[in-house]
């Protein structure tokens, strides 16, 4: 376990450094430079030069890189170009919102997908294909619906037609009920895809476990099929499910950008779209780095959880 953890931590550090460096140098590849791309045709030569200095672009590349690293480490991320707000404080208010949506989605998705997938697998194993085909088909459909489209359809249905959830409004923790109602729709939209992916994995994993030799052993000792399912199958199937939670966190983050944009929720996704539209490269760069860091960290954690669940790893 020690060797494994060390290896994994080393990998985490290398990847993080790679991510940070890649983003930094990619931004330096912009034709002209970031400042002129930002300014477009609006600024005169002198004003452009001032912008460059403000962004630190006139310094040597190495110096820029290290001051950027220092900034990341000390969480001093500079200001937005157009409004002059501190990026750090923007992030501090946006990250909790995005993470709330993400975690709520995972919780909801797991609590629906695992029973659904297990049921499908159990039915398939016993040869009742109708229910299995129904669940598998629905999962495939849900998996392939573009989330922005699902969002619009849900908006049309639940807000505009039925009026259950609000489509817009302020978001603050002062009013928990309003907060929940406001986030409910985005979470629902994102859950659709997540449920589909997780139900599929659960079905495959449980189905595979059910045909393992040790399940037959347990049955030969007199356990019923349902007892075997709960005593053995789910425990073994938990391993691939944990992995998929980590991996599908990426598509979940993709989804948050879109639902935040549609439902005008002030998370990092909205901030990102704002940054791109206002050509604030520094903001965009920081946000992308943070997305990657969140994703990498989540995968690191699920990896450790996996190893914890699997006794075959020596401690």
């Amino acid at each position: 376990m020690l060797a494994y953890s060390l290896k994994r931590i080393l990998q985490l550090i290398v990847t993080t450094l790679g991510v940070v460096t890649l983003v930094f140098f990619t931004l330096r590849l912009i034709p002209g430079d970031a400042a002129s791309a930002m300014a477009g045709d609006t600024l005169s030569g002198e004003a452009l030069q001032r912008l460059r200095e403000q962004m630190g672009l006139s310094r040597p590349l190495g110096e820029q890189y290290f001051s950027y690293l220092r900034g990341l480490l000390s969480f001093k991320l500079g200001e937005t170009i157009t409004t002059g707000l501190s990026i750090s404080s923007l992030l501090l208010s946006a990250i909790p919102i995005t993470l709330t949506i993400a975690l709520a989605t995972i919780t909801l998705a797991l609590s629906i997908a695992v029973p659904l997938g297990t049921m499908a697998a159990f039915m398939a194993h016993k040869g009742y294909r109708t229910l299995d085909n129904l669940i598998t088909g629905a999962a495939m459909l849900a998996d392939l619906m573009p989330s922005f489209w699902t969002a619009l359809v849900f908006l049309l249905l639940f807000s505009l037609t039925l009026g259950i959830f609000p489509a817009s409004g302020t978001i603050s923790l002062e009013d928990p009920r309003a907060f929940l109602m406001r986030l409910a729709l985005p979470v629902l939209v994102l859950s659709v895809t997540q449920i589909a992916a997780m139900a599929r994995i659960t079905r495959t994993a449980v189905l595979e476990v059910l045909s393992e030799d040790y399940i037959r052993t347990a049955r030969s000792m007199g356990w019923s099929e349902l007892q075997v399912l709960f005593r053995h199958a789910l425990k073994n199937a938990a391993l691939p499910i944990v992995t998929i939670v980590g991996l599908s966190f990426g598509s979940l983050l993709n989804g948050t950008v879109i639902v935040e944009f549609i439902f005008t929720i002030p998370g990092i996704g909205s901030l990102l779209v704002y940054g791109i539209n206002s050509r604030d490269y520094q903001l965009v760069q920081t946000l992308i780095v943070f997305y990657a860091l969140i994703f990498v960290t989540v995968n690191f954690v699920t990896d450790l959880v996996y190893k914890k669940l699997d006794p075959r790893v020596q401690f």
């Binding site: 990998q11 790679g18 983003v23 598509s251 983050l253 993709n254 950008v257 791109i276």
Partner: peptide, 22 residues
């Protein structure tokens, strides 16, 4: 594989967004 791992650290849509913005 090190380079691959770095690229895989970005959620795919976000990597595309970042690149398109540039």
């Amino acid at each position: 594989m090190t380079v691959v791992d770095i690229f895989l650290a970005f959620p795919s849509l976000l990597l595309a967004i970042g690149l398109v913005s540039i």
